[in-house]
């Protein structure tokens, strides 16, 4: 089944840039405007976070944006309402990222069906272990053509990376440096890790994120991986007040 995310990586070797934002933040109605600004600004794909009250893998910036988004009224049913029909206007691949509990309360089957209806291409669910995914949900994800994007860290063993590469789809997400989102570790400290993963012949493209902030981070990552995701730094940009032009600027400054 064709998937925009898979196609994106298959079509060219160009380094891919993705930005993350929290749906419903800064304002409830910003989702489509931010997506439009990002597509026009030239990002290759987008990660949309759906908020959770207790995001255990997130640092303060994304925690705050999640809390604010919930206070603004964001929820999965609201987000799917906003994304319905979005494929008439937005062409770049869309990935949803969030925690398991809101998905379980929404209902996994209904969640998958809504992702398909709205044209979502992939999912990052950090607290859904791959073993549980394989046991319970993989067949449904594959039937729906949805990518399940696994995470790896500097502590992930080579055997485990191969296991995740076998069962995941879309791309493999290199958490850069041990940490929650928004970490301020210098990426160069993790060069050995990037080097090691680069040398592994994997099925999936490799994309790095968590703690990626600047153009120089991107320059470093170009040597090792196929793409990068910037989250907290962009959420901070949105927090400070944004326009289509400011987002275009933000993206251009990274390229």
């Amino acid at each position: 089944m064709s998937n925009r995310l898979t196609d994106l990586f298959a079509q060219s070797d160009r380094f891919k840039l993705s930005l993350f934002f929290t749906a419903g933040y800064p304002r409830l109605v910003d989702t489509e405007r931010i997506l439009t600004a990002l597509e026009e600004g030239g990002v290759d794909f987008v990660e949309i976070g759906f908020p959770f009250s207790d995001p255990m893998a997130d640092g303060p910036v994304i925690q705050n944006s999640s809390q604010q988004a919930i206070a603004n009224g964001m929820a999965l049913k609201v987000l799917f309402g906003q994304l319905k029909g979005i494929r008439d206007r937005i062409r770049i691949p869309l990935v949803l990222m969030g925690y398991l509990n809101p998905v379980l309360q929404f209902g996994m089957q209904q969640f998958i069906a809504n992702c398909v209806t709205c044209g979502v291409d992939g999912l990052i669910l950090p607290d859904l272990p791959v073993e549980v995914y394989v046991d319970q949900y993989k067949a449904q994800f594959e039937a729906a053509g949805l990518a399940f994007i696994p995470l790896i860290t500097p502590q992930t063993s080579p055997e485990r990376i191969r296991f995740l590469d076998t069962h995941g789809s879309g791309f493999i997400y290199l958490v850069s440096g041990p940490g929650t989102t928004g970490g301020d570790k210098c990426l160069e400290q993790e060069a050995a890790y990037f080097e090691r993963v680069k040398a592994m012949p994997l099925r999936l493209p490799k994309v790095a994120g968590f703690g990626v902030r600047t153009k120089s981070d991107i320059e470093l990552l170009r040597q090792y991986v196929d793409g990068a995701i910037i989250g907290s730094a962009f959420v901070r940009h949105l927090e400070a007040g944004w326009s289509n032009a400011s987002v275009a600027h933000f993206v251009a400054a990274l390229k």
Partner: peptide, 11 residues
């Protein structure tokens, strides 16, 4: 029960 943990905690 179970172990619904992010990959970072797996090791």
């Amino acid at each position: 029960g179970g172990a619904f943990i992010p990959e970072m905690l797996l090791p």
